[in-house]
Design a protein around this nucleic acid. Structure first.
Length: 359
DNA sequence: AATTTCCCCAACCGCGAAGTT
DNA sequence: TAACTTCGCGGTTGGGGAAAT
């Protein structure tokens, strides 16, 4: 069909918005609600095209926008969802309350993508690529004890259930065991380790599901490069239908996982409320799509995000969900989520669980 | 201190989908 | 059914601040 002329560009302002323009837009939307973006700027007294107004509103002025750095859980969720959805930023944003697709897209392109590349992970396929992998950084930073190993640091992201990388990592570990007895010093400042993960659990969980609980997958099995136990995008989209109470999920988890794998993880609260810590500053704005007033809080995304998060977040994680994304460590110094997580997520593999069994 | 380079992110652009006439 | 309008998405750009030289 014919394309709409974007807008009459003559005389319309472009570029950064001024506070006055912002206020005009806010005032207008608070009075009349949003919608009909084409006529909105004229009615609001703005020399902008409707598209520009819509973007400004949805990406910046909306009262439910969450500002600040991405939390570890958010980052983790982005990676997980991206492994399933690809560059469908709006779909990803729908499951990250308060975050916009634009913000997520920017964060992916400026942070996560680069980090994955440095770790030898193809950010498109979420699969390891040996031509990208910086082996030296792995060797120098990932092994410091035979029995204690931070697999998350090694693998970088929990979404990478891809067994090939696990195999690669394990191969390194095995060779290290054979050839060296000394401990490796962990460089806590290595940026490649920043994107760490808490979910070695996930490394096992999905294969276990797929293998009918009876055996672990072999390395040649094809396993989707994601850890959320949904086989496809449609299934993921149906997350919204899940109740916010996860008692069934816990049953499912405990049934699905062998006890020797699950016992290190305490069951999560069944009524986990993602919004519990952040109910501040809700402005009320009319949503023309509804006859009632909306406060822009998406319950759907609440539920779905919680579900995914519960699946992948050990209860031992000290990080408050949806908290401000700046972290303060014990010394009162702000700490970036990238670095704090490398410490909290050290993962101990019990002697009875030999990672080589997964080979 | 000055200049250059790098990086981030708000905003723009083009396109397709969905809705309306 | 076609023509048109509106909206939303994803890719890209460029301004400005930070870091490096």
């Amino acid at each position: 069909m014919g394309r709409s002329p974007c807008c009459d560009k003559n005389g319309l302002k472009k570029g950064p918005w001024t506070p006055e323009e912002d206020q005009k837009l806010i005032d207008y939307i608070q009075k009349h609600g949003y919608g009909n973006w084409r006529t909105l700027p004229k009615n609001a007294g703005l020399q902008r095209c409707g598209k520009s107004c819509r973007l400004r509103w949805t990406n910046y002025l909306r009262p439910d926008i969450k500002r600040g750095r991405f939390s570890f859980e958010e980052e983790e969720t982005i990676i997980q969802l991206h492994s399933i959805l690809g560059n469908k930023w709006s779909a990803i944003a729908a499951r990250l309350p308060g975050r916009t697709d634009n913000e997520i897209k920017n964060y992916w392109n400026t942070h996560i993508r680069k980090r994955l590349l440095r770790m030898g992970i193809d950010p498109v396929t979420h699969s390891p690529r040996l031509d990208l992998l910086d082996l030296s950084s792995i060797l120098s930073s990932s092994f410091y004890n035979q029995s204690q190993m931070n697999i998350s640091r090694l693998l970088g992201v929990n979404s990478l259930v891809n067994p090939e990388l696990l195999r690669l990592a394990t191969s390194f570990m095995s060779s290290q065991r054979e050839n060296q007895n000394h401990k490796f010093i962990v460089d806590h400042n290595v940026e490649d380790n920043q994107l760490c993960s808490s979910q070695v659990q996930d490394q096992y969980q999905q294969p276990l599901m797929q293998s009918n609980h009876n055996h672990l997958p072999t390395q040649v099995q094809e396993i989707p490069a994601c850890c959320i136990p949904f086989s496809n995008e449609a299934e993921l989209m149906n997350l919204d239908q899940f109740p916010s109470n996860f008692s069934h999920l816990n049953d499912w988890q405990s049934n699905a996982m062998p006890s020797n794998l699950t016992e290190d993880y305490v069951p999560l609260p069944t009524n986990y409320d993602y919004y519990a810590t952040d109910h501040h500053h809700h402005q009320t704005v009319k949503d023309p799509s509804s006859s009632e007033t909306s406060n822009f809080q998406s319950n759907n995304s609440n539920q779905s995000f919680s579900f995914a998060s519960v699946l992948s977040t050990p209860s031992s994680s000290p990080t408050q969900l949806n908290s401000n994304s700046t972290y303060v460590n014990n010394s009162g110094i702000e700490e970036e989520p990238d670095s704090y997580c490398s410490d909290i997520l050290k993962f101990e593999i019990r002697d009875s669980l030999d990672v080589n069994d997964f080979m």
